[in-house]
């Protein structure tokens, strides 16, 4: 996932992650959604989504390992 070489694209990376995280919660403002719709690159969204899912799984695994070791 490239960060891009100009400022708007950098903001794009953060926006992508933000959009994906909000999607995990299942909530989004219409205005932000329109913003996402017009500015986000779907490929980036998919990559961020997969990455966030992996992080989500690993977090749960860490919690479980902590609990089991008690």
């Amino acid at each position: 996932m490239s960060d891009g070489d100009d400022t708007p694209q950098r903001a794009g990376f953060l926006s992508t992650v933000r959009a994906v995280l909000w999607s995990f919660a299942g909530v989004r403002k219409r205005r932000d959604y329109n913003q996402d719709a017009s500015s986000l690159n779907p490929v980036h969204v998919i990559i961020a989504g997969i990455f966030a899912a992996v992080v989500f799984v690993l977090s749960i695994v860490l919690v479980v390992r902590f609990v089991v070791s008690q």
């Binding site: 959009a19 909000w22 999607s23 995990f24 919660a25 299942g26 909530v27 989004r28 403002k29 219409r30 932000d32 959604y33 989504g49 997969i50 899912a53 989500f56 799984v57």
Partner: peptide
């Protein structure tokens, strides 16, 4: 919450794999 519905549906789909 149309936007939320779209996002929530996609996340349910991805997370259904785990």
């Amino acid at each position: 919450g149309y936007a939320s519905m779209v996002y929530a549906t996609s996340s349910i789909a991805i997370l259904s794999f785990i």
